[in-house]
């Protein structure tokens, strides 16, 4: 799989000032650090169960969410740490959730795949492949019905494209002109299944045409390209022009999950993609174009290291869920009270 290297535009046309550009870098660096430390904590046995790391795909979550407002909804799959933190959930609460602690986003009951925070309109990570797409489409129907000034962005992987729920969602979204942006994170593997073994078409974005939806391929390793594409798609949705389909060409550097030995791809392939690591290329570009200095970049890297250390300390010190609460928070009759609720 090769990606065409377009002539890169200079940074300034993106109408972002130095602070905003460094902000994008900071968020990507935070996600990277968060995931690397998560892997360590997992190895130490502090985190267990299913855990899917976002390493490599940071430019997608950070770029896409930077094009959204707090009011916009985000619905995503199980590889959800990146979108959750990018959407504004306190990373401490995300780490606490991974630790299964009471201070986690889902009170320690959801774990890695089920982060959720209504406050920032992060409507969840979902474990069933493609199962969240009808939820996102339904949210968009609610937004349209209530005539609200916001959109839904939903993230999913290349494996989800083969699911019936994907098909049904895209058909209805275009039929009803719903304000939803479908963001496909094509990282080339559905677990261990390479895209060419799961789809007879090499690219997925032309599939959008089958529903009458405009589809577009985007360099998912370029945070500014992602941001720009999602901005356009969001504007379309707000103008009442219906859904968009964006295929982010990206790559996960780590295995599918913590229990995947990753024997289906070569070391060399990973190394090739690592050369396009947004955590490497984006700061290089900032320095090259004199937006930032190497020192500023290093300061940010130091800050996020410290921030993630605090996240781990917070998660470690937080209490476990109360056994007495075991039966709570499932049925409406026992809604969580006060600020404890998810």
């Amino acid at each position: 799989m090769t990606i065409r290297h377009e002539e890169r535009p200079v940074l300034t046309p993106h109408n972002l000032d130095e602070t905003e550009l460094l902000g994008l870098f900071r968020r990507m660096a935070l996600l990277r650090e968060f995931e690397e430390r998560t892997a360590e904590q997992y190895a130490r046995g502090r985190i267990w169960g299913f855990c899917h790391l976002y390493t490599g795909q940071e430019a997608v979550a950070v770029g896409a969410v930077s094009a959204l407002t707090r009011e916009d909804y985000v619905v995503t799959a199980y590889r959800d740490h990146g979108q959750a933190i990018a959407k504004g959930i306190d990373p401490k609460r995300v780490m606490a959730e991974l630790f299964g602690k009471r201070t986690g986003t889902s009170l320690g009951r959801g774990g890695s795949m089920h982060l959720f925070d209504r406050e920032v309109n992060f409507m969840g990570g979902y474990a069933i492949v493609g199962g969240h797409l009808p939820i996102a489409t339904g949210l968009a129907l609610a937004v349209q019905y209530r005539e609200e000034d916001r959109i839904v962005a939903t993230f999913f992987g290349d494996g989800a494209v083969a699911e019936g729920a994907f098909h049904e969602s895209l058909n209805l979204a275009q039929l009803w002109q719903l304000p939803v942006v479908f963001v496909l994170e094509n990282n080339l593997y559905g677990m261990g299944t390479a895209v060419e073994r799961a789809s007879a078409t090499r690219d997925f974005h032309p599939r959008a045409e089958a529903y009458g939806i405009p589809g577009e391929a985007v360099d998912g390793m370029d945070v500014l390209a992602v941001r720009e594409a999602v901005t356009r798609a969001r504007d379309r949705a707000l103008d009442g022009k219906g859904p968009s389909f964006l295929e982010m060409k990206t790559y996960r550097f780590r295995p599918h999950s913590m229990s995947d030995p990753g024997r289906y791809r070569t070391r060399g392939e990973v190394d090739i993609w690592r050369q396009r690591d947004p955590l490497r290329t984006f700061p290089e570009r900032l320095i090259e174009e004199e937006v930032a200095t190497r020192e500023q970049i290093d300061v940010i890297l130091g800050e996020v290291e410290e921030e993630v250390r605090e996240c781990i300390a917070f998660a470690e010190e937080s209490p476990h869920p109360e056994p007495a609460d075991l039966m709570r928070f499932v049925w409406a009759a026992d809604e969580p009270e006060g600020e404890d609720g998810p």
Binding site: N171, Q174, L175, S199, A200, T201, P206, R207, E209, A210, Y211, G212, I213
Partner: peptide, 17 residues
């Protein structure tokens, strides 16, 4: 009201058929 695509035959292209 079933699909936003005028020709259902066009859906085949999405699957390489």
């Amino acid at each position: 009201k079933q699909t936003a695509v005028r020709e259902i035959a066009r859906k085949a292209a999405a699957y390489g058929i």
